[in-house]
Simulated scan of single mutants.
Amino acid sequence: MVRVTIEEIQRDPLEYLRRVEEGETLVIVRSQEAIAQISTHSPSSASPTPSDPFLEGFYDGSPELGSGSDCQLFP
């Protein structure tokens, strides 16, 4: 895990993205306080969930809207 500032990333963003691609985790700091973390994305462990509680009953976790007659935008 590497601590970096926004200014350091702005100087060479591609270098930091390369490091993340190689498996390194970046912790972005401001005034010595950690404010964000950047790490590689793992599609198998990523589980998209609705951010709005109202939508929870409508989202089944699949990446697609549906097919056939069960998915009509306009009747």
Rank of each mutant, 00 (worst) to 15 (best):
A34Y: 03
A46E: 09
E24P: 03
H41N: 05
E64T: 07
P53E: 11
D12H: 13
C71F: 13
E22I: 08
T49Y: 15
L65S: 13
R30A: 02
E21R: 07
R19L: 10
P48G: 09
Q72K: 00
S67R: 13
S47E: 07
P13M: 04
L73H: 07
Y16M: 10
T40L: 08
G61T: 02
S31E: 00
T25Y: 05
H41E: 06
E21D: 15
S62R: 13
F58V: 12
Q72E: 07
P48R: 15
E8V: 04
P48T: 05
S39K: 10
P50V: 14
L17E: 13
S51D: 07
S45R: 14
P53W: 09
E22Y: 05
S31I: 01
V4A: 11
I28C: 06
P48H: 12
F54D: 05
L65I: 05
E15L: 15
P43D: 11
G68A: 02
R11Y: 05
G57C: 15
S45T: 11
A46H: 02
F74N: 06
P75A: 08
E24N: 08
T40S: 02
P63H: 06
V27D: 02
G23N: 10
I35Y: 04
D52I: 09
S69Y: 13
S44H: 08
V29L: 04
L26R: 02
S62N: 04
L73C: 07
I28Q: 00
L26F: 03
Y59D: 01
E22A: 06
E64D: 13
V20A: 12
E7A: 12
E56W: 03
T49H: 10
L17M: 15
L73K: 12
I6G: 00
P48F: 12
R3V: 00
E33H: 08
Y16R: 08
L55K: 11
D70T: 14
I35G: 01
E8Y: 00
I28F: 06
E21T: 03
S51H: 06
P43H: 08
S69A: 14
I38C: 11
F58T: 09
Q72G: 10
E7M: 03
T5H: 13
G61L: 06
E15I: 12
G23Q: 13
T25G: 12
S42I: 01
